[in-house]
Amino acid sequence: MSLDRSDVERIAHLARLQINDQDIPAYAENLSSILHLFDQMQSIDTTGVEPLAHPLDAVQRLRADVVTESNQRELLQRNAPATENGLFLVPKVIE
């Protein structure tokens, strides 16, 4: 399976990554060689094999419905690129 320029552009858009135009051929080649690596899986018969999502056969633990967090807005927003009146600012959201 080989990827072309439009594949790379489509995936990069889905992943919201700006990729320089001149880098696209190199990415396409890299990604194609990685996908080629994946091809060796396809010959393996996995019929009836249960997919393994977690290595341990554990189940979800539950948390008591008790408030444990207090307002830390000032601390938590110190890393924010832009805030005003306690809100995170972003370029206008159009709905």
Binding site: E84, N85, G86, L87, L89, V90, P91, K92, V93, E95
Partner: peptide, 15 residues
């Protein structure tokens, strides 16, 4: 929630 009052052309995000 995205709040659309105008913050100098920006939107405010309340989580």
């Amino acid at each position: 929630k995205s709040l659309h009052e105008d913050f100098h052309g920006m939107s405010g995000i309340d989580l």
